[in-house]
Design a protein around this nucleic acid. Structure first.
Lengths: 140, 140
DNA sequence: CTGTGATACTTAATATATTAAGTAAAACCG
DNA sequence: CGGTTTTACTTAATATATTAAGTATCACAG
């Protein structure tokens, strides 16, 4: 529950910034992941953004309709599809970036750099432990 | 993103337990919050479970259909509605509790008690700071 | 080349989340 | 008491999450 509450509070901060630009948190994750790449496969993108493929399908469809991303076939593999940002999206990312950086700065101001790093370390240790243990008691 | 990933890993653990009993994570939060109470108002329940009222409406409707909760009017206030567990639900909670405790134990085993407390403290400090700052830059 | 299994997605069905409106009952105020 | 604001929910509309199936390719063994 502590994780839930804290994540909720953090997300809320980002959401107030992003919603001003008509974006959801997930859409921003995708924009940020695509930024600086010539094109990513949907499955890689999904993995980086922690969004499952069925959700990606819908999100990318909406983003494509708004002219934020474009999909194109992968020469080498007829199954996979690549996605990249449009110029509109590039500009949008540049516009939003500083605001998002501000939110990160606020978080660091609240905890201080030392505690923030401590928090990261603990979160990652816990995550790693759970993934590790998952292999034992989970699906082989 | 670290918060997101870790929360995802934790929730995944609980979900494997809960889905065996046909419950979602949110439904479990509600069962746990109602357990030991004679009846809670929906808004209080929503607050404790960190679930917004519009979501509560649907979740409670489904839980009522499965015979897990019952709603009844509040004498003192015609607007509010109280909810309480059925006997079926009581039994289910007792059945699931030990499994859930097992997950908590696993988490503590991964981090150790000291680090776990540290993590809680950091999460709460960050949450408090965000809520505090939110009042400044947010509504009002 | 062919059957088989694995990949990369999409579709479908159900459950939540989130924001904005709508509704009914209280609380408040002049 | 009548009008206004607030409170406690529900409804609606849209966006995701999650699990299970379905589809088209690929990779590979025989």
């Amino acid at each position: 529950m502590a994780l839930l509450r804290t994540r909720e509070a953090v997300v809320q901060r980002f959401r107030t910034v992003l919603s001003r630009h008509g974006l959801t948190e997930q859409q921003w994750r995708i924009l940020r992941a695509l930024d600086g790449h010539e094109g990513l496969e949907i499955s890689l993108l999904a993995e980086q953004c922690r969004i499952l493929l069925p959700s990606m399908t819908g999100i990318l469809r909406r983003m494509e309709q708004r002219g934020l991303v474009r999909r194109y076939a992968n020469q080498a593999d007829g199954r996979s599809i690549r996605v990249r940002l449009t110029e509109t999206a590039q500009a949008l990312v540049e516009e939003i970036k500083p605001e998002v950086v501000g939110v990160y700065a606020e978080i660091e101001r609240i905890l201080g750099q030392r505690k923030l790093e401590q928090l990261y370390a603990l979160l990652e240790e816990l995550e790693a432990g759970l993934l590790e243990g998952g292999r034992r008691s989970g699906a082989v």
